[in-house]
Write a protein that binds this DNA or RNA. Structure first.
Lengths: 159, 159
DNA sequence: GCCCCCGTACTCGGATAAATCATGTCCGAGTACCTACGG
DNA sequence: CCGTAGGTACTCGGACATGATTTATCCGAGTACGGGGGC
């Protein structure tokens, strides 16, 4: 998993706390977390293509959430940054070389058991991430530190 | 996930079918699946360090399973090849820059909610892989293609 | 005084380098077998 | 004939290249604000 996913999730949580009518520049988000501004911009860019955030250029431009925080799952973010490609890619080695002659014995190609097993595990992972929303995480943070949302909003509201 | 994991699992299944008193050289396993021999050797090497296979040098040397197939889980293989490092590494950006001042507000460092969420998802993945053994997968294959085990053993028994 | 136009400053967006990691290769260390020699 | 020592062939194990992917940077495209000029 690319670490940009972590950045993106934190950014989404923070964005859910700033005034909805205020766009936050990538540089400001980067400063807040001590991250390289240009690179973070690239990641937010990816979120934009996925529709998770909306972006505008120019003065008073920047990023804001593209949907309600309740409608953004961790899976959405992960897919936007990492891409939707499967982590485990069955390369079909079962059918290469002498092994192929045995696997394809009856002429019917049964699904690769190994790939199936890993797919199941990955599906569990995906489901778990898909069941968690930004709003939920933000709320958990707020519960542990009730002042955080206001503090964050205020920090971003400062010029 | 590195694709060496896929290779390793297939190799383990095949090893569970060859005569237990017979070690299989890496080159032979590689040939069976049409894989680069030297590199597969490297992967099997990793399995050896983890104790999943035992290895011997010299003539009639090679690899054989280090435990019963029932005692080898997919998680074991994945860890042996990929390493046990978490896929999602919390880099602690929550405490960098101005964000740190807010997160550490009360002087008590609460666990990072984002990291926790991803850890849960990853744990689901790990549990799923840990519940699947090589023996189980081998049996599934055998059920779909009853002749496979014998065919495989015979192939490896050929000089 | 009001409106329009232009210049400026600011921010995104994608094209372009640098670094890191996975992939792949090679050669030395180790081991068993086979052969030859001596008892 | 039996035991032993040495050579040889085979295989693992880790050190060394290579290529792809991730990380990071830079500059052009786009947009709103502000000032100046004209009506």
């Amino acid at each position: 998993m690319r670490e940009g996913v972590e950045w993106a999730v934190h950014c989404c949580i923070n964005l859910s706390w700033v005034s909805p009518d205020r766009a936050v520049p990538a540089a400001r988000l980067a400063e807040f977390h001590g991250l390289p501004a240009a690179y973070l911009n690239k990641q937010l860019n990816a979120l934009g293509r996925a529709g998770l955030v909306s972006s505008r250029s120019g003065p008073r431009g920047g990023f804001r959430l593209g949907r309600e925080p309740e409608e953004i799952t961790l899976m959405d973010v992960a897919v936007a940054i990492d891409g939707s490609a499967r982590a485990f890619l069955c390369t079909g080695i079962r059918h290469q070389g002498p092994a192929g002659g045995i696997a394809d014995l009856a002429g019917h190609r049964t699904p690769c058991t190994v790939a199936q097993a890993f797919s199941h595990a990955e599906l569990a992972w995906r489901h778990n991430l898909a069941s968690r929303t930004i709003a939920e995480l933000a709320d958990t943070v707020r519960r542990a530190n009730p002042a955080a949302p206001d503090q964050v909003r205020r920090w971003f509201d400062r010029t």
